[in-house]
Nucleic acid binder design. Structure first.
Lengths: 218, 218
DNA sequence: ACGAAAAACGAACGTTCGTGCTATTATTTC
DNA sequence: GAAATAATAGCACGAACGTTCGTTTTTCGT
């Protein structure tokens, strides 16, 4: 009388992998609050009610744990920001969707302490080593996705042809980081609303008449 | 045969205060690289070749050391960014000077690991306590200075009357943080040059014909 | 130059850090 | 269900953490 009901992909994973996932889910949240260096093995073990050594065995070293945490954060980021936006058609709608989903991902506290990568970026930005490299690579890729979205909007004729895609992607993400700063540090609850409006203004300023309308939520 | 030559203000300070200053000078540099939480008493003592307990006595607690470090960083920031810019006449020149000095202060590695406050902002942005509050207050004040500079430029007739000063100050600082991110994390050596150009473009886009020219360095 | 006050030191405290081991459970596989 | 394997726990380690305390050295006002 076993395996009567269908089992989900997650449940079918071997025990070890399931534990590993739950560890990393806690780790990314903790890291977004206390920093990646602040994610301590003992602290994690307490939170998950398991032994330090048992938890440790999943990774073998603190550095491996940090790398796994970055990778896990990346997946969550992809799931909440990139994947839903890529469902939109290429052009201004997709670019705008990336903006909206990024802001929503911060606002909705997908990570307990705001964007994992915002924290990790500034924590590791003047260090050396594989962890820093992993963070930098993830951010390069994110900037690349934004850049391609801008480029796609140009190719769709939604943005003027003379727009510098790299530069505009950078500008948009700068506003995003700034909004994060205002929202998290200054506790300005209107910061993210303002950032949405500013992003839209900037896109509209560079848009052609062909550009479809960009709707603000709510 | 003593005190023949004139003594500087720094040298005339009592011994304790002089040591305290040298500790904090190392602390801010260390914090800009390793984070404020990473500034450890033992590490600081090593760096300064003094005993942990001797160093510790200057502050009484780690939290007091952190508060003193924030205050020291604030003074250095003021000295390198705010004070020189306030020498410029109110209006677009002063606003532009704030931008240029901020970028130069990052580029010139006034702190070893980039801007102390950029690091501290994202390190403490989801914590509680007096250290976080000190950082937030410093940043509020900095944003206020930027906002007043924008407002001054409006009053001088250099910026259009319909410019939202708070919002534009926020936009400028967002570009600054973004530039820091590109320069420090992505190791993009052109990032700060681009940010200078983008700041200038944004100011010019909102400028009146009365606005004096904004010169890029070099 | 001397005595008081301030500063720096050395050793030790209880914790927590990351990381090994060995033993003991759970979970798979046949 | 037994054998093989994987996962977890327990314990110990050396190092570093923030902090305290008593002692020694240095500085400074007189």
């Amino acid at each position: 009388m076993a395996t009567a009901r269908p089992i989900t992909a997650k449940e079918s994973l071997p025990k070890g992998a399931r534990t590993r996932e739950s560890i990393l889910r806690v780790a990314v949240d903790l890291a977004s609050v206390e920093g990646l260096e602040g994610v301590t093995i003992g602290r994690l073990a307490d939170e998950l009610k398991m032994s330090k050594s048992g938890l440790f065995a999943h990774f073998g070293s603190k550095e491996e744990l940090q790398l796994a945490t970055v990778a896990a954060a990346r997946e969550i980021f992809t799931e909440h920001v990139i994947r839903p936006a890529l469902a939109e058609p290429a052009g201004a709608p997709r670019l705008w969707s990336l903006c909206l989903h990024w802001v929503q991902y911060v606002e909705g506290k997908v990570f307990k302490g705001g964007c994992f990568f915002a924290a990790a970026s500034f924590e590791f930005d003047s260090r050396k080593g594989v962890v820093r490299d992993a963070i930098a690579t993830a951010m390069q890729e994110w900037l690349g996705i934004l850049t391609r979205a801008v480029d796609g909007a140009k190719k769709a004729g939604h943005l003027k042809a003379n727009v510098n895609a790299e530069q505009f992607a950078f500008e948009i993400y700068s506003l995003a980081i700034g909004g994060h700063w205002g929202f998290q540090l200054l506790e300005d609850n209107k910061a993210l609303d303002r950032v949405r409006a500013m992003m839209r203004d900037r896109i509209k300023a560079l848009a052609t008449p062909k550009c479809p309308p960009l709707k603000l939520p709510r």
